[in-house]
Lab assay of single mutants.
Amino acid sequence: TTEYTFTDDEEARRAIEELKKRGLTFRYEKHGTTWRVRVD
């Protein structure tokens, strides 16, 4: 499991789109302004 942290909404959304394109399994949660994206 790899975890990424983003504080920029645009950056987080781009990363999420990219992961979807690659067909990877991931989860994300947003805490205030911080996004945590975990890739299995």
Rank of each mutant, 00 (worst) to 15 (best):
K21E: 07
E10H: 09
R13S: 06
G32P: 00
A12K: 02
E29W: 15
R13V: 07
T5Y: 14
A12R: 02
G23Y: 03
D9F: 13
D40W: 15
E17K: 10
R27T: 15
D8H: 05
T34R: 06
L24Q: 05
D40T: 13
H31T: 13
R27N: 09
R22Q: 11
R14L: 09
T25V: 11
R13Y: 12
V37K: 00
T1H: 12
V39T: 03
T1S: 11
A15K: 10
E10Y: 10
Y4C: 15
T34E: 11
T5N: 05
H31R: 10
G32W: 02
T25R: 13
T7C: 13
W35K: 01
Y28I: 15
E29D: 07
T7Y: 14
L24T: 04
T33P: 08
I16F: 05
E3R: 04
E10I: 10
L19D: 00
F26E: 01
A12T: 03
T7W: 09
A15M: 15
R14K: 12
F26W: 03
H31S: 11
E18Y: 13
Y4P: 01
T33L: 09
L19N: 01
T33D: 14
F6I: 03
V37D: 01
Y4D: 00
T34M: 11
E11T: 13
A15R: 04
H31K: 11
D9H: 07
D9G: 08
W35L: 04
R14N: 09
R13F: 13
E3H: 07
G32K: 03
D8V: 05
I16P: 01
T1E: 09
T1P: 12
T1Y: 15
T5H: 07
V39L: 06
K30E: 02
L24D: 03
T25Y: 11
T7D: 10
R13D: 04
W35S: 03
E18L: 11
R36V: 15
R14I: 09
K21D: 05
T34Y: 11
T25G: 06
D40G: 11
A12L: 14
E3A: 04
R14P: 01
T34V: 14
F26L: 06
T2E: 08
R36D: 03
L24E: 04
K30I: 09
T33W: 04
R36Q: 06
T7N: 10
L24P: 00
F6S: 00
T34G: 06
K21Q: 08
T7Q: 09
D40I: 15
D8I: 05
E17T: 09
K20R: 13
R13P: 01
Y4H: 04
V39G: 00
V37T: 00
T25F: 12
L19K: 01
F6G: 02
T33N: 14
R27K: 10
K20L: 12
E29G: 04
W35R: 02
E18K: 07
D40Y: 15
R36K: 13
E10F: 10
E11S: 14
T34P: 00
T5P: 01
T2M: 12
E29R: 08
L24R: 05
G23F: 03
G32S: 03
A12P: 01
K20E: 09
T7R: 06
R22F: 06
W35F: 04
V39F: 05
T1Q: 11
R14H: 08
R27G: 05
T25A: 09
R36T: 14
G23M: 04
F6R: 00
E29P: 00
K30A: 03
R36Y: 15
F26S: 01
R13A: 09
E18G: 07
E11Q: 11
E29T: 12
I16Q: 01
T2V: 14
R38E: 13
A15Q: 05
I16W: 02
K20Q: 10
E10M: 10
F6V: 00
D9V: 10
R22E: 05
K21M: 09
G23V: 01
A15Y: 15
A12I: 04
T7M: 08
T1R: 09
R36W: 15
E29K: 07
R27A: 11
T33Y: 07
A15L: 14
V39E: 02
T25N: 12
K20D: 04
W35N: 02
T25M: 10
